[in-house]
Design a protein around this nucleic acid. Sequence first.
DNA 1: ATGTGCATGTAAATTGTTACATGATTCA
DNA 2: TGAATCATGTAACAATTTACATGCACAT
Lengths: 185, 185
Amino acid sequence: MPSQPDLAPPKTIELTAPAYVVLGMVRLGASSGYAVKRMVDRSIRFFWTISQVQIYPSLEQLEQAGLIIGREDPRGRRPRRVYEITQAGDAMLQRWLVEPAPMLFELRDIGLVKLFFADALDREQATELLAAVRQRSAERVAQLHRIEPEAEVARAAGNLYPLLTLRMGIAYHQAVIDVCDDFDR
Amino acid sequence: MPSQPDLAPPKTIELTAPAYVVLGMVRLGASSGYAVKRMVDRSIRFFWTISQVQIYPSLEQLEQAGLIIGREDPRGRRPRRVYEITQAGDAMLQRWLVEPAPMLFELRDIGLVKLFFADALDREQATELLAAVRQRSAERVAQLHRIEPEAEVARAAGNLYPLLTLRMGIAYHQAVIDVCDDFDR
DNA sequence: ATGTGCATGTAAATTGTTACATGATTCA
DNA sequence: TGAATCATGTAACAATTTACATGCACAT
């Protein structure tokens, strides 16, 4: 029997989370792999990271699946490949956003681990540790406030949700600070 | 020249974070590998996880370094090895708790990633996604409240900090809920 | 007698990071 | 002319998870 012609992307491809992240960033205008990395670091860095090494294979995979389309666009003699999302890509992203699968949540925080064990210290040292954890969150809050202007720009361009997730990052670390202060009496 | 007698544990051994977690849990009374796993799942699960596979090699490593001491203590015909922390282990744990090294903080949250991209959806679907993220946090809050009695027991036994970190978990997810509600007007 | 919890272990696979390498462009 | 940024790539390594495997003890 004749094999089906390879015109449409298969509907059954499974993408990993990092690939969806790359897809979403391309949709928001990150054209090159380098730009994707930069945008991740300046937006969702608080709750997702991705290393440069993972990005380029993801872009290839997405292009082969017809979810993004790329073309060479060198800057002078420096090679560069730029991408745009396709209709299929947009549909795929939306499907992922609404699918009812459980959403992974994974926190790894040495600061809280140390605090959990702080009864092993004398009172003075424990208080210092608490202060260190508090300070770390205070720095994070400041850092997140610093990127707020970028989220405002996104809002002005019609993207409301980047600002929302930024607010959540700030709220999280503020909550840590509040609990620290509360514990101190 | 004669080599130094191998009486004291070397001062230079480097432990990984999971090994310190195991050490801390043994200090709090988790005697077997199985008990360590259970205690982790019932206490610091919100900000640190460890798989059973990592625990047994950690215990061996800690024992070889003289930080814990183990003995066979079978239950009937079922073999079991139980551990206690040593003075050296206690000192090592304290040193780790106060060392000024930067404390890793790593959050991976698909829920927030999806929310970040939610402008790709129409308003109705985006609102549903927001509700899903909110609900997830509400469930977490409930779950964390459920283990509060255990933290209270720890407090009664002189360990104040487990309750503090539990409160932080609750505060974090409550912050997410508050920001969701605020965004909804 | 049967299911749940206790207790440990191995092998394979996945996933992600670090380090290194290269070179062009842009701006001060 | 030198530093920062743009842009992509490879190789080796480290960390962690999933799946599988085994068997006793205890309570219903």
